[in-house]
Design a binder for these strands. Structure first.
Length: 701
DNA sequence: CTTAGGG
DNA sequence: CCCTAAG
């Protein structure tokens, strides 16, 4: 029946411009932390990495607020470079992909800062593929400083301790300060570790990219690493804050387009046209177990620990980051998760979104160790710098004061590769919507932010910025953020964990796939004839799918110059003291709230029509009837909308807000509401006659 | 999973 | 929209 050809597009990823910091009101929304029970919660791959700049609040309250939403890598580079030049303080140098076959491999942007005559640079950025719940990055210093310190921690072994996300804290600071213990782990030390690890791991995962070993390894739980709160930072606190940017080859959407792989095939044939396709298929198969999986996920992985909700202090930190996710909430309770799952299912409807390994691979590749890009840190004096250059004394004082804030500027997030499947007959519009959907789903299906400090992941959510050193510039040579999937994709039935680990990197298997967009298609199941409105509703629904995302979100138009300023308030030490470091809270995740999507008049009309026919109390049916294709409208949403409609209809027009709903509709709402209220209240009587379940249209209309 | 309601 | 208790 469905013989139309479908196109598969693979996006290697694209840049998502950073978002401006959300308003307090938005952030006020409580954040919950979810604990991931199953350590194996290996999300697939890391979705994005972000380079951020951190500023000490002091004096730089008016940090630049433009986000650079680079569209293409080159653009990014230029941008960055340009910016750098402007800012002066940092030297920025994109790492060229010099490796022969590394055409696709990414390049690493490195900003190094010069501190005490040493250059720091983001040397590599690696992501774990297996337990890819986390990405891993390591920082290498320009080795003027031999890596001789040794850390007692062995980062390797913990492959299975997924929960223990790898985290390395490379703190030059530490070295310089000669801190004892693991704190020393950093710089060369870590790198060595990594390199070694890589060597070891490589064969196992067999991930070789462009001849460069790009594998992942796992480190012990960062927590394990004695990341002691930075002692009051001293001296160099006035050092410039370097900006480290990391981008992989496909960091930008535009760029990815070049890379878009379009494979046209018959859905029922050539099941293995290419790796990608086969991959797609496998995913499709995996969908079969969707339900079961969801349940599993819900019960197994999402048994959130509401108890952690009160870890308050961190909430603050995270709340500030939250905006990045477009106000999406992450499931944190069992039920919630179910719902999320449900939604996800719906959202994906016939489409699954997959986040391919590419993301990770790409990232990893991008930072091939061999590549060396160390730009000399040069100029200083940018505004930001100046800010951070505040006298030590002031720094200290700021540290002491509980009001000190840390300001971060996230240049952009990178969303990993996406795969979508869409009929050839689909319109460009639907393609756009589909992509949007995919993006939305990916972004909304649960992402959490990872924080990288000096290329190392900071896993301890209970740590304050102060403790972590994020509030000290001297410790902030680089602060990075990563977007990580919170979803747990159960390993393919046929594959065991090992299998996964053995998956070749090259196979950019899509984790999610986007099926064709139904709308606009001729052969789509039409709505029942007796529901004209529903039809319109349906058709419109889809259009709603293309939720108007914030401009900066749309890949089509990104604002290159804008920069988001995300600030993370530093927490007072005292506050921290109160917060116990529960081991659990480590693996917590943020929950994002769904994006708000106001009902349009046409949607309202469809809703009204459906309710008139079905009555209240049958939201499921209403949904199916009028919003079947509106994946983002759940029956609960419809119910809620009806509730508000009734309310709206009762209040004076002046009190109404939002897109005005035609009075006519409101009248119908009241009418229907009254009718069904009565109908529902007196069920006893002649149920049959009067209101037969199926559909008893409102009498007088 | 659905409903129904409170938040 | 979210969150939940109930069914």
């Amino acid at each position: 029946m469905v013989l139309q050809k479908r196109l598969y597009y693979g996006f290697n990823g694209f840049e998502v411009p950073a978002m401006p910091r959300a308003s307090r009101s938005v952030r006020r929304r409580r954040l919950f932390e979810k604990k991931v029970e199953d350590s194996r919660m290996r999300a697939f791959d890391l979705l994005a990495t972000v380079a951020g700049e951190l500023l000490e609040e002091k004096g730089s309250s008016a940090a630049p607020s433009n986000v650079s939403g680079q569209i293409s890598e080159s653009a990014i580079r230029k941008d960055s470079i340009k910016q750098e030049q402007q800012d002066g303080p940092h030297s920025f140098k994109p790492e060229p992909c010099d490796q022969g076959s590394c055409d696709e491999s990414a390049s690493v942007f490195v900003l190094s800062s010069q501190r005490h005559g040493h250059d720091f640079s983001f040397k590599e950025y690696l992501h774990s593929k297996e337990d890819s719940t986390f990405g891993l990055a390591s920082v290498k210093t320009k080795s003027e400083r031999p890596a001789n310190t040794t850390c007692a921690h062995d980062f390797g072994e913990s492959r299975k301790e997924c929960e223990n996300f790898p985290c390395m804290i490379c703190g030059k600071h530490h070295v310089e300060r000669g801190s004892p213990g693991c704190a020393e782990s950093h710089d060369g030390k870590v790198n060595d570790e990594i390199d070694r690890q890589m060597e070891v791991e490589q064969p196992r995962t067999g991930s070789v990219i462009d001849g460069t070993v790009v594998d992942m390894f796992h480190l012990k739980d960062p927590m394990e690493i004695d990341t002691k709160p930075p002692a009051l930072v001293s001296s160099d606190s006035s050092v410039e804050v370097p900006l480290h940017g990391i981008h992989d080859h496909c960091s930008s959407f535009t760029r990815c387009q070049d890379d878009v792989k379009v494979v046209s095939r018959d859905d029922d044939e050539n099941s293995s046209v290419s790796t990608r396709l086969s991959t797609l298929k496998s995913y499709r198969l995996s969908r079969l177990g969707d339900r079961r999986i969801r349940k599993l996920l819900a019960s197994k992985h999402w048994k959130a620990a509401p108890a952690m909700l009160k870890d308050g202090v961190f909430s603050n930190t995270e709340s500030d980051i939250k905006p990045i996710f477009r106000s999406r909430k992450i499931c944190y309770t069992h039920q919630r998760s179910q719902r999320c799952s449900f939604k996800r299912r719906k959202l994906f409807g016939r489409s699954l979104i997959s986040i391919s390994d590419r993301g990770i691979n790409g990232e990893a590749v991008s930072s091939s160790p061999e590549k060396k890009v160390i730009s000399e840190a040069t100029c200083l004096g940018g505004t930001m710098h100046q800010a951070s250059r505040a006298p030590v004394t002031s720094q200290k004082s700021s540290l002491e004061s509980r009001d000190s804030h840390v300001k971060l500027r996230i240049k952009s997030f990178r969303v990993p590769e996406l795969f979508i499947e869409i009929p050839e007959t689909a319109t460009v519009g639907s393609l756009k919507r589909t992509v949007m959907e995919a993006v939305t789903a990916v972004l909304g299906s649960g992402l959490r932010v990872g924080v990288l400090l000096h290329g190392k992941k900071v896993r301890d959510d209970n740590r304050t910025l102060l403790q972590t050193g994020i509030s000290h510039d001297d410790k902030l040579d680089s602060l990075g953020f990563t977007l990580e999937p919170t979803t747990v994709h159960p390993p393919p039935p046929q594959c065991s964990e090992d299998c996964q680990s053995l998956l070749p990197c090259d196979s950019t298997e899509p984790l999610t796939r986007y099926p064709p967009v139904p709308a606009l298609e001729p052969g789509l199941p039409e709505t029942s004839p007796d529901l004209p409105l529903a039809d319109s509703g349906n058709s419109t629904e889809d259009s709603y799918e293309s939720v108007p995302f914030p401009p900066d979100m749309s890949m089509e138009k990104t604002t290159p110059d804008s920069k988001a300023l995300v600030s993370v308030p530093a927490m007072s030490v005292e506050a921290l003291a109160v917060v116990p470091l529960h081991g659990k809270s480590r693996r917590s995740e943020l929950v994002q709230r769904r994006i708000r999507r106001p009902f349009s008049v046409s949607e309202v009309e469809a809703l009204v029509q459906a309710v008139e026919k079905l009555g209240t109390g049958r939201w499921r049916d209403v949904k199916l009837r009028a919003f079947e294709n509106a994946k983002h409208r759940t029956y609960v949403d419809l119910k809620d909308k009806w509730k508000t409609l009734v309310h709206t209809a009762r209040i004076s027009p002046q009190q109404r807000r939002g897109e005005p709903v035609p009075q006519e509709l409101l009248d119908r709402v009241l009418s229907a509401h009254a009718y069904w209220s009565q109908q529902n209240s007196k069920p006893g009587g002649r149920t049959n006659n009067n209101s037969n379940r199926p559909d008893s249209p409102l009498p007088a209309q």
